[in-house]
Design a protein around this nucleic acid. Sequence first.
DNA 1: CAGTGAGCGAGCTTCCGCTTGACTT
Length: 664
Amino acid sequence: MPKNKSLVIVESPTKAKTISKILGSDFVVVSSMGHLIDLPAKELGVDIEEDFKPTYVVISGRNKILASLKKEAKGKDNVYIATDPDREGEAIGWHLRDKLFKKHKVHRVVFHEITPAAVKEAFRNAREFDANMVEAQGTRRILDRIVGYFLSPLLWKKIVRGLSAGRVQSVALRLLVERERQIRAFIPQEYWEIEAELRKTSGSQAPFFAELEKIEGQKAEIKTKDEADKLTEDIKNKAFRVLEVDKKEKNRYPDPPFITSTLQQEAFNKLRFNSTKTMIVAQQLYEGVNIGQDAPEGLITYMRTDSTHVAPEALKEVRSFIVNKFGKNYLPETPNVYKVKKLAQEAHEAIRPSLLSQSPESLEQFLTPEQYKLYELIYRRFVASQMMPARNLVTTVDIEAGGYLFGASGSTVVFDGFTVLHDKNNNGENTKKTLPELEKGEALELLGLEPSQHFTKPPPRFTDSSLVKALEEDGIGRPSTYAPIIYTLTLRDYVRRLKGYFFPTELGIKVCDLLVEYFPKIMDVNFTAQMEEELDGVEEGEHKRLQVLNDFYPPFKESLDFAQKHIKKEVVTTDQICDKCGKPMVVKWGRKGKFLSCSAYPACKNSKSIPSGVKCPEPGCGGDLVERRSRRGFFYGCSNFPKCTFTAKTLPQDGSTAENVTPR
DNA sequence: CAGTGAGCGAGCTTCCGCTTGACTT
């Protein structure tokens, strides 16, 4: 009698392929491609009066997938729902069962690694759905819907149509706006340093440098050139002598293997990929590229993860790889284990190469340059993460000269450890920091004194890298949303990216200030972390969805009512006069941003662009440069368009934006 | 990567999180 096949549902099609190979021909493995059922997009979909009862509908455009799942299940008794082992995965599976598989035997299956052992083990331990977990997801979903769909319309009414606000994007915006304020308020302070060039009196060794640290036991704080010159003059005649030599061996440990947030950070820092680009290229590596012989092979594990966990099989592989390639001195006795963030949900492994035998070099001919660079980053980081630390001998020397104390330090490599993997251009630092062998009490020859002027620097503007880092540290957003959050903020024109740095716009600052003033609780960076605690309580059955929402909603509604009543939609009148009717022009916001409108509208329909204050540089044109928005972003054009077609990316002779930004 | 646009207001915008293609935005 032919065996009745079983249906297995996972979220990602690539994962489906891999699982299918593991499970063999008794199973048909298909993918849901994420959520299929959700709150309706066009309306709130939450009945506040009826205990926040949600209305769930099939997401538009997802009917086809749902139909094909239904078709696949036909004639099969057993359905295994193997969506991701986290809150969202539990809910995706739950909704599927509710919608499609009421008549089937449905089993919930979870695994954290896609290895034969883990998958087979998971099928042996199939379980029921976790109703509390689904409740926690539903609570999160409803809360986010209420915040987003009440706050956004408030902004439409009080500022301009089309804006948006939400638990995650608005706090991200706040981080950017607050940093911008710190930068604008920053006043650079002048300070001076004095460096001494010294040499051993015996022998003919290379000179070395020491920094003035203390004056008569007090920390050296030199504010002006005058002070620096006076000190230099005084120090010049002092006798230099070694006071203390301290030698210590210090370990430098490798970084953990990548998770989504750290991959985005490193890809930006090393390769200048923004978050979106990093994820697109990582997806290509995950789905696999054609490497000659067989079907496409997935080169890396799943790229949306918050866990540094590594499958035991992969650990075994990397450990024998390290011994074979570098020798057993490079292998720790036991595998390195890395801490996982408190708010992590650990549905997947760390991001690592699927097979170490596929070295970046051996695949280079099959990869695009971008794929190659990212793969190399992932490969090297993973191997390094399981290697021995580097050991450095750090020497710190105190040198006295009268009442002055100078300090010098040097470092030499005792054992390179994981740094054997690093690019060659990382060595410049060490050679510069080498000190000669010095002894306590030894006299030194002063070759020169060099005062140098410095200024304190403002905190740096956020980049893709530092913003993702900040979001992750505060538990705001998830691996699948870091890149979309940034995109949304730019789409709304709350912030613009210039030369890799984020600059909040006037609109972004306005929206942020309004929300902070009227909704301080939601705009608190800890709001999400507090919400997560509540959701954990729901997941553990300590309290119910209704309690959480009943605690949240009334004060939120009160703030909303207050805001509705007290925020005035301001009309910005300008000194421009309407050239049709003589009335003053006012600033209005349209789909494409700000423009000038006659205040007599709708009686007078005159409108024009807002001049930037810079004239068109085209000879004999005389027009104003005005900001334009195209599908691809912002630029400046001439107000005489189409007569004059001048365009520029930034305003000529304007130094207020990206022009004076120096990368760190 | 370079080049980008022609009228905006007074209708239907928006959230977060999960996943890929379809797509004239």
